[in-house]
Design a protein around this nucleic acid. Structure first.
Lengths: 202, 202
DNA sequence: GCAAAATGTGAGCAATCCTCGTATTTGTCA
DNA sequence: TGACAAATACGAGGATTGCTCACATTTTGC
């Protein structure tokens, strides 16, 4: 799942370690020098394998970036699912949402490499659709809760709202961590207000 | 202004035509084959000039993409400034904002190349900051109006809200044109509701 | 009409992704 | 264990593409 594009199915254990090592090196390179600094030859060298071996684990550079992004997405998604699971009322949902936003913002601040991974995704034409797909998955989690809490509302409208709120959440995070901390905090607060008002509106 | 990175200041007229021709070809290439399909050699050939001449007008590929984006941004900005200029009350501002969003959405639908130009900007590490810079400029236009209408509100908070609303507007447009029309319309409606509520909130 | 400055040209350099023929390791069976 | 086969590792080099630079051509100023 995390590495869906492997060239062959290898003798599990060692190759799994190899893949982990490759992704760790890649994360490191991106964290230290930005999303444009990922060179396949350097990635191989720093991981301690040859370029040929690297291409046995990942069919191309996009696959490396995709694996990084999917790992990160899976974490966030699990976090979102868990955070929303308990919300049994509109007020609880608003609270859960607010604290999810805070958590995610904290994560972005603590590990700016997440933003760089997203940059790498957007820099790759073959991967740009990932962002919408991920917003859609997260939106579906939120929409499921909303439908429970508002059984008579228009489902299509709920879905659109949930998708938008999740997508704009990502956009807000990326904006917030690219400005200074004070302003970033204000942006996140404004986003929370907007999103929660829309979610709890009649 | 539109081509701020020219190699030398040339004998105005012909070079201006040349630059226009280059940008027209570039727009065409991006519109037809996506933001990753811009090849400097092909751009030169299709414009009818040599690769060397192309590099006399633009120092590198980023400069071409930047010129495209700046043209597009200048148009939008003028449109936004004009749309907001007349708003002398909170209600009028809300109305002006709503119709600006509709206009911009219509523009995106009619000319999808705008989205591809933004993709090209994001694909280029040297240009990614343009997006925030543009949101900031547009946010400043909106903030100026809001400050007039709410003299006693916290200016920093107004600025953050305006920046966020403009930035999320861009994000919404790009999302909306990448899904089917019905859903896109719903997304834009939801964005308008959210933004206007936040702008007109106490 | 000529020299000098400005502009045009395209072969080729450099960086980078990725392939493919070969070498090495691992697994299996007598 | 030894020998053979299958899986894995290797890295030189092919292919693409951004960009340079030495030279050719055109324009300008007198």
């Amino acid at each position: 799942m995390t590495e869906p594009q492997m060239r062959r199915a290898p003798s599990q254990k060692r190759s799994r370690e190899r893949v982990d090592a490759i992704l760790a090196t890649a994360t490191d390179m991106i964290a230290k020098a930005g999303s444009d600094a990922l060179r396949m030859s350097e990635l191989a060298q720093r991981t301690g394998i040859s370029i040929g071996s690297l291409y046995q684990y990942f069919p191309d550079k996009s696959a490396v970036v995709r694996a990084l992004a999917e790992r990160s997405n899976e974490e966030s998604r699990a976090c979102i699912a868990e955070g929303l699971a308990a919300a049994a009322s509109m007020e609880a949902l608003a609270g859960a949402f607010a604290s999810l936003v805070d958590t995610y913002y904290g994560l972005f601040l603590a590990e700016p490499v997440i933003r760089d991974i997203w940059s790498a995704v957007q820099a790759d034409g073959a991967l740009r659709a990932m962002e919408v797909a991920e917003s859609r998955r997260n939106g579906a989690l939120l929409a499921a809760r909303l439908k429970l809490l508002r059984p008579q509302a228009d489902p299509a409208r709920i879905e659109a709202t949930a998708l938008l709120v999740m997508h704009l959440g990502e956009a807000t995070m990326r904006l917030a961590v690219s400005v200074d901390r004070t302003e970033g905090d204000r942006l996140v607060e404004a986003y929370k207000r907007m999103a929660i008002r829309e979610l709890t509106a009649p």
